[in-house]
Design a protein around this nucleic acid. Sequence first.
DNA 1: CGCAATCGATTGCAAAACACAATCACTTGT
DNA 2: ACAAGTGATTGTGTTTTGCAATCGATTGCG
Lengths: 149, 149
Amino acid sequence: MKMKDTHTHRSGCPINLGLEVFGDKWSLLVVRDMMFAGKRHFREFLASDEGISSNILADRLAKLVEAGVLTRAGDPEHKLKAIYSLTEKGIELLPIIAEISRWSRKYEPVDPVLARTGEARDRMGPDANQQQMAALRRLHLGATDQAPV
Amino acid sequence: MKMKDTHTHRSGCPINLGLEVFGDKWSLLVVRDMMFAGKRHFREFLASDEGISSNILADRLAKLVEAGVLTRAGDPEHKLKAIYSLTEKGIELLPIIAEISRWSRKYEPVDPVLARTGEARDRMGPDANQQQMAALRRLHLGATDQAPV
DNA sequence: CGCAATCGATTGCAAAACACAATCACTTGT
DNA sequence: ACAAGTGATTGTGTTTTGCAATCGATTGCG
């Protein structure tokens, strides 16, 4: 049995604290798959293009749940199915992901097909993020914290 | 002797390609130190709060140079001193870093003193990033692509 | 000159994280 | 009963990281 010693941080710098949560090659890809591909189940994440292995995926899901970015719930219909949902904290990673997308589309050899999501967001203007986050809230949190338009 | 096989990407997804450049616990901290602490020399990066070790730092600097985020130049006065500068590609990481800062300040136990830089940027409004990036261009690139105010 | 201090790294070694394939216990569908 | 599907775990090598010591070259200073 291992005791989790209460998370001692390398520093209190905001950049550093963010990197301690998602500063690796896989965590944000899981969040991306939830946001843009609608994935909710282990096997779906496992099938992503980048080819994450199952032990790494299990580790990342657990860490993201512990960090409060995701929640894990059992599907009431299928006792073995775990459903992962974004929390508000996770949904608010979208602006970061959107900026990474913008940067890569400018400077890296992105696949034109995969770039379309980001391009569409750019064309939508400044409140694209808020609209997309609102949609994610409806899907992952429940619909109750929206003001009527 | 190991051969570096020409960078085959895990996927052409913009998020993934960004993470392949700076998706680790240290790369963005180096960029942060250049942007907000004015650091330009190996020994300065080495003295950051988070305590990077010298071999990791050397590796990250080399990778960031290879990725086109930084440039390395010899100080003409001191033959042993290397001066690292941000490229335009590196300067345009600022919106990503700013969003990470905003997210961590909302959700993580940041040091209030270290949070001030980000809070000030938030108070400046929507063109804070562009202003800060313009200042970085003057410092790192040369002054020639600025329109007069 | 002599020589310690400083420069950007490199080396050696142990520990941790990762990649990959096989497998697990359990549930579901038939 | 039993094959297929569920979210993982285990085992085994490889790679990356962390840490301390050290390197060769240059600089500062007497």
